[in-house]
């Protein structure tokens, strides 16, 4: 693989990671918290209706997790392609 092909492959993998994480980002907030909120509200956790919990608590916890998962995956990818700092 030439250097350029390698960088292309790196970028493709990076974009793939981004897109999969953004799918989760969309699902927990716009999905569970807004579009399907009534559907999720039929279940409860503790005193929360589930849809309401996603909108006011759950989505935020998942956002935090997503960024740390991203950091971990990208650090690994950087080393794999030898572009780390």
């Amino acid at each position: 693989m030439t250097h350029q092909e390698k960088m292309k492959a790196y970028w493709r993998k990076n974009v793939k990671i981004l897109l999969s994480l953004l799918v989760v980002w969309f699902c927990v907030s716009f999905g569970c918290g807004i579009l399907l909120v009534d559907f999720f509200n039929q279940w409860h956790i503790g005193g929360f209706k589930l849809g309401f919990w996603f909108a006011q608590q759950g989505s935020i916890y998942v956002f935090v997790l997503l960024i740390f998962v991203y950091v971990w995956l990208l650090n690994r990818l950087d080393r794999e392609f030898d572009v780390h700092e």
Partner: peptide, 29 residues
């Protein structure tokens, strides 16, 4: 604001935190 808006106030909670995911993944690095 959330006290009086209830569930509708969620737009601020999700809106002002979810942006950081975009920032981290798409812009900052």
């Amino acid at each position: 604001v959330i006290s009086f808006a209830g569930y509708d106030g969620s737009v601020y909670l999700m809106g002002w935190t979810g942006g950081y995911v975009l920032l981290a993944l798409l812009l900052a690095p």
